[in-house]
Amino acid sequence: MAKYSEHVKIDGNAMVADGVNNGMMKAAAKDDRIIAVLEDMGFPGLGWFKENAPERVIECGIAEANGAVMAAGLAAEGFVPFIHSFAFAVVSRACNQIRQSILQDRFNVKLLGREGAWGEPGISHNHIEIIGITRVMPNLVIVDPADVVEAEKAVMAIAEYIGPVFLKIEASPPPLRIFTEDYPFDLGKAYTVKDGKDATIIACGYMLTESILAGELLEKEGIDVRIINMSTLKPLDNEAVIRAAEETGAIVTAENASIIGGLGEAVATVLSEYSPAPLIRVGIEDEFSQSGRIMPEIDELKTHFGLGAEDVALSVKECMAKRERLKKRK
């Protein structure tokens, strides 16, 4: 068994959405400026809202463009609207609205986007470009929590933070329950799940689960890999990346999204500007997703895209070989 950091205790599986539910209820109970903006896709903690503050539930229907700008209007008057829908609807459908009416004036609107890269709904809903689309927009903070505990803390943290935030909620496969209840979540800060010296896996969202499994596979082969949870994709924790590059010299990024514009590219930018080191980006290549069954024993899309623990472990070994080749050439 690998040696993990003190706030890590791996214990079964749990849905990220449950953590968001809990966090939303706690945040809404604490701050009465929080308003639930629904787009016909339910809302985390809706039961709490209906029971305790039914007037704070605003239903926009399937009109995401109007929902986003209307929320900006609420935020302009000092309220804190949370918009919840599928990621493709809440962000991509209302992309221009978010850019002009929310980000240009830096209104305090929180976007909660469900559904990650894989799941039964298929190509339209499995929105793999979402990080690339949002990462280029100024003023936006992007968070992709890795497990149920982190999701709860992330929702409470973004409610405290004043400014626009996009929170990605992985809806389909339940990730491992990774962190303990006293896990110190910090916006814009990476967390080292496991220390190591041979190579580093930087992961976000669901792929932290696969990275931890990969770490255990590599442990058996005698490779001591460092695992970093980069849950805030923007602003990226440059320090953690640079330190990892200097101390381990081989980096693999893992994300269940397009490798273009995602975590991999963000890390690549930091590496090439501050501390060049070999890098392999594990993610979905430049292609669309599709439907696939997700069950505990078989996850068809994970196999299709090559995002399993074995694939991450293989990439770590490849990256280490790359590092050796580079050393020889010098």
């Binding site: 700008v69 209007g73 302009a76």
Partner: peptide
């Protein structure tokens, strides 16, 4: 009161402001 440019969004924003007024009166 509103940063515009991309057309068609102002009425939604005004609706948001009007709704906020209802909240404030409450």
């Amino acid at each position: 009161d509103y940063s515009g440019g991309s057309l068609g969004q102002g009425l939604s924003f005004a609706a948001g402001l009007a709704l906020a007024e209802k909240f404030k009166v409450l």
